[in-house]
């Protein structure tokens, strides 16, 4: 049975193979990743072979095949950010969190991701935290950001 949650996304798009990418976009936005279950459901509903759904989902950068951490730290690696030290920020994040880019910390609190340009080049280097943009970043600002997220996460856990 189709998980209820995909119903509204598939509404008006069923049996329309060309809607595949739009559907995947919405699933990614809603679920945070594209699960195997979602891929099978999309394949059935749009009439696209599962192989093709997987091929498309793995081709485009917008789609993640694994669940991501609660806080996705995305480092912009565009040229303008690169020349202003984006590499330092990536080292700081991976070094501090102990995971590589594309991975999630064991506690599920952080994922580190890279994007090739966010189009805020004038304010580089730029880092986003769940979509919220932090500009003119440097390693110490990034450390503070990560620490404050961690603290907020810990408070939440102790509240529970």
């Amino acid at each position: 049975m189709l998980p209820l949650r995909l119903d509204s996304i598939l509404e008006g798009r069923r049996s329309q193979p060309h809607q595949l990418i739009e559907v995947l976009q919405d699933v990614q936005e809603q679920e945070g990743y594209i699960s195997e279950e979602a891929m099978r459901a999309i394949s059935n509903e749009l009439g696209v072979p599962p192989m093709e759904v997987y091929r498309v989902a793995s081709f485009y950068k917008a789609f993640s095949m694994q669940p991501r951490g609660k806080n996705v730290i995305t480092m912009c690696m565009g040229t303008a950010c690169h020349v202003r030290g984006a590499k330092l920020l990536l080292s700081q994040a991976t070094g501090l969190l102990g995971v590589n880019s594309g991975e999630t910390t064991d506690d599920g609190l952080f994922s580190i991701e890279q994007v090739n340009c966010l189009g805020t080049c004038a304010l580089g280097p730029v880092v986003t935290e769940n979509g919220a943009c932090h500009h003119h970043m440097n390693p110490s600002k990034l450390r503070k950001l990560i620490k404050s997220i961690r603290r907020a996460g810990m408070e939440e856990t102790s509240d529970e």
Partner: peptide, 25 residues
């Protein structure tokens, strides 16, 4: 309006059109 999937190659016209048809770019 169609949203791109984050592939640089889709800036190329034929790849973009493939993407609009729901295929890999």
């Amino acid at each position: 309006i169609s949203r791109g999937g984050g592939a640089f190659v889709c800036g190329e016209s034929t790849a973009l059109m493939a993407s609009l048809e729901g295929k890999v770019g």
